[in-house]
Design a protein around this nucleic acid. Structure first.
Lengths: 211, 211
DNA sequence: CGACAAACGCAACTCTTGTCGCAATAATCG
DNA sequence: CGATTATTGCGACAAGAGTTGCGTTTGTCG
């Protein structure tokens, strides 16, 4: 979808195509910041970009895909995967990095608008699993290193572990609207770290569930 | 917003007001099931409800708020707060109940549509903290009972704990698109239970992170 | 440089969305 | 029951969404 990138040597990547694309994406970002997702109208984007509206309609099949394209371009600064030497350190650093990212005004807007596009368009939604699996695969390194160190059993579900770390952060941001802070990140990281420690089969088998 | 509930004795709660409201909400639900959120149009809702479109427009300022109102009404069947006698049992039961709820077709539709409304409309987003704090307050009983039993220190942030339990479940459903299962619920519950156990200050201070 | 093809601008059009004024109806109160 | 007032129905309206056909500009290649 929206395979309209500037690829030199293919069809007609001229200076114009890329230029128009850039100005439209920038205009989308500005319009989004000004009016929000639902109030965004294509004609306004075209006006801001100094481009005719038919051009926008021809390139992007829907508002959702235009926004998704803009946000994906914009979110190239991915969260770096930390490597502190211990699982506890990695999890805390990752949680803090996620909070710093999605907690910022920019990061919040990107996340929110991307999710809005995801939810309102099936075409965008179909691309999302790939988008997220790439990210989870990156953070999966944390779990792999922990397994190599003997901090985790080798049959741990890395996705569940990482999702338990970042899930509550996204929920606070997107659903409950509660504030995010480094302290919250640390609290969640501590819970997950302790939970991971309890997974080690040699010390305790099914810990925590009796009493 | 949308303070148009049937309140007997206030202004004019006649039989009609409540009747119209009900039929519109029901029509919204049907239209939502048929076409999805983005394809939903007010005029269609009005047709289905046997009501003129201006009536709908006058009561609900936007599509997002109409949908949010419908979903809130619809989700009165709240997840029951378990009381098994132990924190571990409560957390596991709650996680399973949440999975059973949002994993069902109905629950999924409700959750997804509510999120769509939240994300696309600032007005709806502003109402969400209240909505969620009510729910979290209910589940907070689990934490309170655990504190009373001495399973948790009394300065635990109940919201963070519960959100760490249910957050990953919502993330799997709404963001990554990964499958939900009772097994996932149990895994998350075990992590959080162990994390909660590690919070007890008398046994271990910040433990769990060595190897 | 000159021809071809792709991408854009422009204007016109249809369809939908959302709003407004006014008349009709239904509920509340004396 | 009769007056009052909230609420709805109705038609008309402006504004935006999205499409189409055609002429023009602008890269790309022989």
């Amino acid at each position: 979808m929206t395979e309209t990138e500037a690829r030199p040597g293919r069809k007609r990547p001229g200076g114009r195509t890329a230029k128009v694309r850039d100005s439209v994406l920038r205009a989308t970002e500005a319009a989004l910041a000004a009016d929000g997702y639902d109030a965004l109208c294509i004609e306004d984007v075209a006006r801001r970009a100094g481009v005719h509206k038919t051009t926008v309609y021809r390139r992007w099949p829907s508002k959702a895909e235009l926004v998704a394209d803009t946000m994906r371009e914009r979110s190239t600064k991915r969260v770096e995967v930390p490597d502190t030497g211990t699982l506890a350190g990695d999890l805390r650093a990752l949680a803090r990095a996620v909070v710093a990212n999605i907690g910022s005004d920019d990061g919040f807007a990107i996340t929110r608008n991307l999710l809005a596009a995801t939810i309102t368009s099936n075409a965008v939604a179909d691309d999302m699993p790939k988008f997220w699996s790439e990210r989870l695969q990156l953070t999966g390194d944390i779990v792999e290193r922990a397994i190599a160190r003997g901090e985790l059993p080798d049959d741990v579900d890395a996705n569940v572990l990482i999702e338990t770390l970042i899930g509550p952060l996204y929920v606070r941001l997107l659903l409950t609207g509660e504030p995010l802070s480094e302290e919250v990140a640390d609290q969640v990281a501590r819970i997950v770290t302790a939970g991971a420690a309890a997974m080690r089969p040699r010390r305790t088998r099914e810990r925590g569930a009796d009493a």
